[in-house]
Write a protein that binds this DNA or RNA. Structure first.
Lengths: 147, 147
DNA sequence: TATTTTTGCATCGTGAACGATATAAATCTG
DNA sequence: CAGATTTATATCGTTCACGATGCAAAAATA
């Protein structure tokens, strides 16, 4: 009984880890045809909301560091989704802007969120339960991200 | 307004993705001194609960595929935490068993779960909210994993 | 203004995830 | 029992996530 807390079943983190993996996996059928990955989709969401942002702003938004985001953006530049130009006011910055290809992808990606929600709901009934998840996750994220 | 659903803020998945990353990160202060990673810790939890399991059982337990688990186990074997021996009844199987080092690590890892929960609670108050998370995540996981 | 500190970005190395593919052993089926 | 199928594991390639480190530009401070 001493080791009870060690039991895998009791772990909240394992469920988060697994749920996150599976959720990202659920995007695959929708993202594969567009030729992008889930993290790349997140970058596009940020840029669709506001084009031309420095790397650091994108990183902040995604709560990632530049050592993750930079290579991600480099791959996306390579596949023609965006451009990275030198900043003018602050020359340290790299301003990321969508290409034609990156911009038009928005139309094709338009229905992904509803498809995904529908997909998940079909398999687990209640909408309420999912929506209650969000504020709790927000608190958790806020707690864990402050340092 | 047409693109409203695309907005990052509305995305449940992004929160899961972020919460999972940050939660794994919260294990670092406890796992680094033991020289193991979070996925390796998960493998150890499984083996501490029951030693000597074939690769596929461990994979099933963690809801991962062998192409993820095999290299993970190889690294753990390399660092002396476990052994992988040929199965006797089924020669295709590789039976994974803990070494002395892997076994004794259990003592040192004993307090990790309580430390982590305490750590999280300190930063976000209510226990109830966290505990309500678990069954919902379970449903989500179950829904997404069935195919 | 000179020096220090901070900031923005990049590179490198390691460990995961995971799709695709391969191989041998076990199992099923005709 | 022979051939087909499934199962258990492994390998390879790509993309991430992230700690450590480096560097130049900007900002702060002396």
């Amino acid at each position: 009984m001493e080791y009870k807390q060690l039991k895998l079943n009791n772990q909240l983190c394992f469920r988060l880890y697994t749920a996150a993996r599976l959720t990202v996996g659920a995007y695959h059928p929708y993202l594969d045809p567009l030729g992008i990955t889930y993290p790349q989709y997140l970058v596009l969401l940020v840029l669709w909301e506001q084009n031309k942002q420095p790397v650091c702003d994108i990183a902040k938004r995604l709560m990632l560091d530049t050592n993750t985001v930079t290579p991600l953006l480099q791959r996306m530049e390579k596949s023609g989704l965006l451009r990275r130009t030198k900043g003018k006011t602050d020359t340290r910055q790299r301003i990321v802007s969508l290409t034609e290809k990156g911009t038009t992808l928005r139309e094709q990606a338009k229905h992904i969120p509803e498809c995904l929600i529908a997909n998940i709901l079909e398999k687990m009934g209640s909408v309420e339960e999912l929506t209650t998840l969000v504020p709790t996750l927000d608190k958790l994220i806020e707690g864990l991200s402050e340092r």
